[in-house]
Design a protein around this nucleic acid. Structure first.
Length: 418
DNA sequence: GTTTCCATAAACATGA
DNA sequence: GTCATGTTTATGGAAA
């Protein structure tokens, strides 16, 4: 699997790493928080299936993935959690297949059996299992080692995969270690709470949010992980693949462009004291800045330019890009270099952008040395950037609005019943 | 055959 | 210089 490793490369140590003091904390993104809130409200997330290839599709994949992971976490420890292949010998070149069999997977009982969960899920579970909901990477290693003995003897490289997932998967965000205690408060104000410009048609209140096309569903062969109303039924199997009607987002005000809508709806940010502030730029239009990809580097090396979202996951400004107000706020932000977060609601755009960027780069710079290629990224236009972000935010906002609608409907229904 | 997702490997940078 | 951490890219397998 994967490219052949050159002999010159030193294999990664499989032992527990020593804290270097560099590590920061990881936690789930605000999307996860929304999902948790939804669960606390005893709500089933709407099942949304979009047309293949649409921008929203990937965002919703993220949403569903997160929810699936959460339910997996809830199910963790249940002996009938998942069915996997029989125990395999580590010396066998063939990697253990995640395909299910009649044998249940038990991490303790089968220490040589590779867990049938993706690294993303393992990381998610580790983070969710932490009281503070955030962990430094070395503790994520430790959690995985503790709960999945397979990795103690696993081929080296799994830590690399963990780090790779943390970096690449925007469901995780890096939290500044020193300021991690204040993050929760900053996240209490969620920009899409106030959104009311989007609706979803065909929302099913009872359908599980895992649709058969979702990666986790596919990976786990249809084993039902998510059950509405907070009831987890481990080991139950999906009976039908036709349970999930496709629905499309419907903007209430179709006249307003998506970008404008996002700017009007989400045109505030959260300041360091937790107070929402209107018209504050937090997502720069600078094409060099990739808020969904290079935030960590930015936080350390480009302090002040792009990484300071002040803890607000979604921080879109109502002002036009490059306005004076934006410049003013930028200068303000620079004065608070340690307060940063991630434009997490735009994170769902990462994969789409990554794919597009890859295609561009392959065409443009395949002949360049690796180092050269990295420094010559094709610039993305402001418009493209804004369009993507707008789409992402609007859609996620729509999901949230949908949840709110469900809440209202449920409350209304209960009233009427009384 | 194509697409998508994921795991893995690796190059490279940074900071302690 | 070493090591841990973090980012990014490339590649191949599996599944739909």
């Amino acid at each position: 699997m994967g490219p052949v490793m050159p002999p010159s490369k030193k294999p990664e140590s499989s032992g527990v790493s020593v804290a270097s003091g560099l590590s920061q904390f990881y936690q789930a993104s605000s999307i996860t928080r929304a999902l948790q809130e939804a669960e606390e409200m005893d709500l089933a997330l709407p099942t949304i299936k979009l047309e293949k290839g649409s921008m929203e599709d990937e965002e919703l994949t993220n949403l569903n993935w997160l929810h699936e992971s959460k339910n997996l976490l809830n199910s963790f420890g249940d002996p009938v959690l998942r069915s996997v292949s029989p125990v395999q010998d580590l010396d066998d070149d063939t990697p253990p297949s995640p395909a299910h069999s009649d044998l249940p997977y038990d991490a303790k009982q089968n220490p040589n059996c590779k867990p049938p969960y993706s690294f993303s899920c393992l990381i998610f579970m580790a983070i969710e299992d932490a009281p503070s909901k955030r962990l430094p990477v070395k503790d994520i290693y430790n959690w995985i080692l503790e709960h999945f003995p397979y990795f103690a003897n696993a081929p080296t490289g799994w830590k690399n995969s963990v780090r790779h997932n943390l970096s690449l998967n925007k469901c995780f965000k890096k939290v500044d270690k020193d300021r991690s205690q204040g993050i929760n408060a900053l996240e209490l104000v969620d920009p899409y709470i106030s959104n009311d410009c989007m609706l979803y048609s065909g929302v099913s209140m009872s359908s599980p949010p895992i649709w058969p096309g979702s990666p986790f569903y596919r990976k786990n062969k249809g084993v039902l992980l998510q059950v509405p109303q907070g009831v987890i039924q481990n080991g139950a199997r999906m009976m039908s693949q036709g349970l999930f009607p496709g629905i499309r987002p419907l903007p209430i005000n179709p006249i307003v462009s998506r970008t404008a809508a996002v700017r009007s709806v989400l045109g505030y940010r959260i300041t360091s004291d937790g107070e929402p502030t209107r018209n504050s730029p937090l997502v720069s239009s600078d094409p060099k800045e990739d808020h969904t990809y290079s935030f960590a580097k930015s936080s350390s090396s480009d302090v002040g330019e792009e990484a300071h979202c002040d803890g607000s996951e979604v921080s879109f400004h109502a002002n036009e890009a490059g306005s004076d107000a934006e410049e003013d706020d930028k200068s303000k932000i620079k004065k608070e270099p340690k307060e940063w977060s991630v434009d997490a609601l735009a994170l769902a755009q990462h994969k789409k952008r990554q794919h597009l960027t890859k295609v561009k780069q392959r065409v443009a710079s395949d002949t360049l040395p690796l180092k050269k290629r990295r420094t010559e990224k094709p610039p993305e236009s402001d418009d493209e950037e804004m369009k993507e972000a707008a789409g992402s935010l609007l859609h996620l906002a729509g999901v949230r609005a949908c949840l709110n609608n469900i809440t209202n409907r449920t409350a209304k229904g209960q009233k009427e019943q009384k």
